[in-house]
Nucleic acid binder design. Structure first.
Length: 274
DNA sequence: TGAATTGTTCTACC
DNA sequence: TGGTAGAACAATTC
């Protein structure tokens, strides 16, 4: 389940491999044309043919390919994998896309649930309109967070998951961040105390940076490179730990539902601010 | 068989 | 009207 740290891991790994390459063609071997989200398969293939990838980077959970003309934006959703080498033949049916480069190398987009999508556009305005602040950017600071939470008056977990508010957080890291901050996920955003706001700000930064340093969390569906996996799973405190003792207080971690999402909490440590 | 899974988008509501 | 909450959707597994 790729979130910001997983997407960053993929980009860190692939950028030196694909930057400077020229797209000879792009193929959808299984004819799953829904992967081309914002135009037809034929238009898409025609548009990117012969273009150089000048830069590979990340915005929110999107992998952005800067092309000589225009941009590709790829979203891995739940189960997408972007790999420079093919997987075993038995997984060929999960291949959504294959890039053929002019130097005979390839880039494979495997996605067994086929939720992943790719976009081609001449600018990235549509993405900027859609996405909120980058949590690792300078603009994301304590005063921004304080002000933005106060004016939104929403439940904390759904708000942190809202990509138009902060871009890149997903279910795993929001649970971890709220646990570290001692904030109950059903707390209201305008009722968080000053002390907790500082905790929250620090937790967002440290959790994401740690996860990137460990190449992300491989829970079920994430791998990169030659099927390498992230090591942050070992560092998780609450996600998937239901029934196990809280590392802070020893009370059992509970799994509840918040905003239709599976949510892991320590009911003792995480205070409900209403 | 249907519930669970996730991120995003659409729709309905106040 | 704008912002928010909740449903729907994509496909697959067990």
């Amino acid at each position: 389940m790729p979130e910001l740290p997983e997407v960053q891991t993929v980009v860190n790994y692939l950028a030196p491999i694909v930057q400077g390459k020229i797209i000879h063609s792009i193929d959808s071997p299984n004819h799953y044309d829904k992967v081309f989200e914002n135009r037809s398969a034929a238009d898409f293939k025609k548009a990117v043919q012969g273009l150089e990838i000048t830069r590979l980077w990340r915005r929110g959970k999107y992998i952005i390919f800067d092309l000589y003309e225009g941009y590709l934006a790829l979203h891995l959703r739940m189960t997408g994998k972007l790999l420079p080498n093919p997987l075993h033949e038995k997984y060929t049916k999960h291949l959504s896309l294959c890039f053929d480069f002019s130097d005979q190398t390839k880039l494979y987009f495997y996605d067994y649930r086929k939720f992943g999508r790719i976009y081609f556009s001449s600018t990235l305005e549509w993405l900027e309109e859609k996405l909120g602040i980058e949590p690792l950017s300078k603009g994301f600071n304590l005063s921004w967070l304080t002000q933005s939470l106060a004016q939104r008056k929403r439940m904390m977990k759904p708000l942190l998951l809202d990509q138009s508010f902060i871009a890149g957080l997903g279910n795993i890291y929001v649970d971890e961040i709220l646990w570290k901050s001692n904030i109950h996920p059903q707390s209201m955003s305008d009722k968080i105390t000053k002390k907790k706001l500082l905790r929250l700000y620090n937790s967002v930064q440290t959790t994401l940076l740690d996860a990137i340093a460990y190449n992300g969390t491989t829970f079920i569906n994430f791998s990169f490179g030659n099927n390498r996996t992230g090591e942050f799973k070992e560092k998780l405190n609450v996600f998937g730990k239901q029934g196990q003792p809280c590392l802070n207080c020893g009370e059992k971690i509970q799994k509840i539902r918040v905003g239709q999402r599976g949510t892991h909490i320590c009911n003792h440590c995480q205070k409900l601010h209403m």
